[in-house]
Simulated scan of single mutants.
Amino acid sequence: MNHRPIPDEPRADLCTRAAELYQANGTIRTVAEKLGQSEYATRKLLVEAGVTIRQGGPLQASDAQRGWNNFGRDHSPGWRKPKITPAQRVEIKQRLADGEKPTDLATEYGVTAGLIRQLR
């Protein structure tokens, strides 16, 4: 198992690969094994990729569980959906390195200039 944070660029590729494996009727467990990630990390990658998590097993998921699976409205206290995707993060970092202003990028992505500055 890999328990280290995944850098942004490979993370976007990993999200895509996880989505492909899952959408080919893989389970979170089998996708996690193929990617060398934990089931929790794999679930996060799938959600970042925009995949709707399927209900599985003989028991039906409750509304709260479906919300957690798909980042619905039922979350633990203090949880907030990320404002930008990992792919956008990579693009923003490159554009900052190319000399674009954080305020211009913030307007384009609908976030604060402070968030953009944190990505430097």
Rank of each mutant, 00 (worst) to 15 (best):
G36R: 02
G57I: 14
N2T: 06
E39W: 01
N69W: 05
I84M: 08
L45D: 03
E39C: 01
S38Y: 01
H3C: 04
G72E: 09
T85F: 08
N69P: 01
Q60P: 14
Q94R: 13
A113S: 13
P58F: 05
A61G: 09
S38H: 06
A87M: 10
R17F: 03
G50D: 08
R95I: 07
E91I: 12
G36E: 03
D63Y: 11
P7C: 06
I116L: 07
A61K: 13
V90W: 09
G99Y: 12
V31N: 02
Q55K: 14
G67I: 05
A61Q: 13
E33H: 02
T30I: 11
Q118K: 12
A97Q: 12
S38C: 07
G67L: 02
R89G: 09
V111Y: 05
Q37I: 01
A41R: 01
G57W: 10
Q23W: 00
R54A: 15
G110I: 04
Q94P: 08
Y40Q: 12
R54E: 15
R120G: 15
T27G: 11
V90P: 13
K93E: 13
A61L: 14
E108Q: 15
T42F: 00
R95L: 03
P5N: 05
A64R: 10
L21T: 03
V31C: 02
G114T: 12
A61V: 13
D104G: 08
L105I: 13
Y40V: 08
S38L: 07
T30Q: 11
L35V: 05
L35Y: 04
R73F: 08
V90L: 09
Q60R: 15
G26T: 10
E33D: 12
K93M: 14
R80E: 14
D104F: 06
R11Y: 01
G57Q: 13
V51F: 06
W68D: 08
P77M: 06
A61M: 12
P58G: 14
P10Y: 09
A18S: 01
D98F: 06
L21W: 00
R117N: 11
L115I: 06
E39T: 10
S38A: 11
L21P: 00
M1P: 03
R17M: 07
L96V: 12
T85P: 07
A18N: 02
G72D: 07
E100K: 14
L115W: 00
A106N: 02
D63P: 15
C15L: 00
Q37W: 00
A87I: 14
L59H: 14
P58H: 14
N69L: 09
L45T: 04
V47Q: 03
K93I: 13
P77L: 11
T30F: 02
P5H: 04
D98C: 12
R120Q: 15
E33G: 04
D98P: 10
A49V: 08
L119D: 11
P5E: 06
Q88N: 10
R89Y: 02
